[in-house]
């Protein structure tokens, strides 16, 4: 095999390179997802990749799966219908921080509460990239965006804590700098039977990096390299040593029956009655 191993999972007739800016982390996440799917030996015909709107949500069109590019914020609602009607499908939701947590926040928490079996890969670049760099629910307070020229006045969400509190069975965070760890986390999430979140911290050099003078893709990834702490190490450190850093790893891993599994019991009860 003298070809990039990911190519067999790409749409053969789709034009490349992809739509993302040079150095955007989203392509690295795509690579990690493809390797995770290959590692688990999942059948492409049984993969459903559902996305909303935004930079990250352009991913499904490139992957040779069943792909559904929906409306802004609504990917998880669509994905719930896909999974519920055909529970055989492995559903991956591709979403971003604005898509999943602002306009789609309600669907996010309720799908986690229901524990609908899906893997949500949330590419967190802390900004709205596609529309020109407006602040999102994960933009850290004080950081600049095109709609926060003096720095945001809002506090940011922690997607992993949110997912855990809402009832997800798995919540983990990785960075695109550590693509190998990210791949491992996605592999773990795909194997879960329930609502599993992987937050992938993915730099946006074109907008976030420029607006906040954090440099180009290389500099932003260098920052990731130097400012990432694994959750196990972070637990042993004093809080001031963790503040401002990216904590990665698995935050929550539980076993609870998934929605379609419970719904099968509803069907059995309805038929028995």
């Amino acid at each position: 095999m003298k070809i990039h191993p990911a190519y067999e999972m790409l749409r053969p007739d789709k034009n490349f390179p992809n739509v993302w800016c040079p150095g955007c982390g989203h392509g690295i996440v795509q690579g990690a997802i493809i390797r995770a799917v290959q590692k688990l030996g999942l059948d492409r015909d049984e993969m459903a990749m559902v996305s909303g709107i935004g930079c990250s949500s352009r991913m499904p069109v490139y992957c040779d799966f069943n792909s559904l590019h929906t409306a802004h914020g609504r990917a998880i609602a669509f994905a719930t219908g896909v999974k519920l009607h055909n529970p055989k499908l492995h559903v991956i939701v591709i979403t971003g921080d604005g898509d999943a947590l602002a306009i789609g926040g309600n669907h996010f928490i309720h799908a986690a509460r229901r524990n609908v079996e899906m893997t949500v890969v949330l590419m967190n670049n802390m900004i709205y990239g596609m529309t020109g760099g407006q602040y999102s629910p994960t933009t850290p307070i004080g950081k600049r965006a095109s709609t926060a020229p003096y720095g945001t006045a809002e506090r940011d969400f922690d997607p992993c804590s949110l997912a855990k509190a809402a009832g997800a069975v798995f919540a983990a965070r990785g960075t695109v700098y550590n693509a190998a760890e990210l791949e491992k986390l996605i592999t773990q999430a795909l194997a879960k039977k329930g609502f599993a979140l992987v937050e992938a911290v993915s730099p946006c050099p074109t907008l976030y990096g420029r607006l906040n003078r954090e440099g180009n893709a290389v500099k932003m990834m260098q920052w990731q390299k130097e400012n990432t702490v694994n959750v196990k190490a972070a637990e042993k450190l004093p809080p001031e040593k963790v503040r401002g850093k990216i904590v990665t790893g698995v935050f929550h891993d539980a076993e609870t029956p998934g929605y379609t599994e419970i719904y099968d019991r509803v069907i059995a009860k309805a038929r028995g009655a």
Binding site: A48, V50, L68, T70, A71, R74, A77, F78, A79, T80, G81, V82, L84, H85, N86, L89, N106, H107, H110, Y263
Partner: peptide, 22 residues
Amino acid sequence: KFIQMEDEIAGIGTVLGAAAAG
């Protein structure tokens, strides 16, 4: 399958997702 969603947007969203799945 019947599902009561969190709002009407989710209602039609899940219906369209199910329709895509046949």
